[in-house]
Design a protein around this nucleic acid. Sequence first.
DNA 1: AACCTCACCTGCGGGC
DNA 2: TGCCCGCAGGTGAGGT
Length: 269
Amino acid sequence: MPELPEVETVARGLRQHLVGRTITSVEVYCEGSIATPCPEEFRARLLGQQVRAVDRRGKFIVIGLQDSDLLVHLRMTGQLLVAPADQVCSLRHVRVALTLGDLRLLFNDARKFGRMALVPSAVEWLAALGPEPFDEQVTASTLAARSRNRRLPIKSLLLDQRFVAGVGNIYADEVLHAACIAPGRLACSLSYAEFEALLAALRSELQRAIADRGTTLSDYRDADGQSGRHQQALRVYGREGQPCPRCGRPIVRIRLGGRSSYHCPHCQK
DNA sequence: AACCTCACCTGCGGGC
DNA sequence: TGCCCGCAGGTGAGGT
């Protein structure tokens, strides 16, 4: 579920609480939630490490330690929550818990899709990820060039984390609506002007969602357990049958790449 | 190589 | 009330 704006919000909250603290205990309740290394090594290597920084890359949270990086991907239902270490925990799906002095960092994840990975270098581990949408090197020209031979729906390309990092199903639909582009259009068929509109929409939609601290449809919470408020600003996602905010005609849901896609067939061409 | 589908899990809401 | 079905924001393995 969490996409770039939600992960950014979580990372900011974690940064505030965790930077400078030292990991004093590690509890792994679900071994499958650790991608690498093995749980024993994961625990041993984390103990005593001080948190240097907390960042985001695409949909990954990067917790920078002294000699390694702890990566967290929340996938659909993952949450990273900070709570007082002495507080009784009422969460039902805690997979990993780290104690840092008098704080506890809880990785809660109902569907067990999320993963933690302790790696020597986040930059190397995430090298295959595409550029951040706010990176200056991303321009309408570079997007157009990289789409030239791509005969797949533009929405599918937006969801490909190697194309740009951080876009998921909700914001892909919102961005395409803002840019007046139909989700099923083949990527190679977009004009230069459409790539300009797409990039502008990508940046403004993500920025607005970050300002709203993300979209909460069900599970998403920030590091302090708070919901986002961008769900009220969504224009198409989840709004099948409701009027398009731009032209008033009904929003339509289609199936694209196995996922629900919401769009306005009248004003998205 | 490029693209598509499905499996991975669990929970929840709607229909019967 | 309770059961069953379909659906869910992400990703990558495997098939075409």
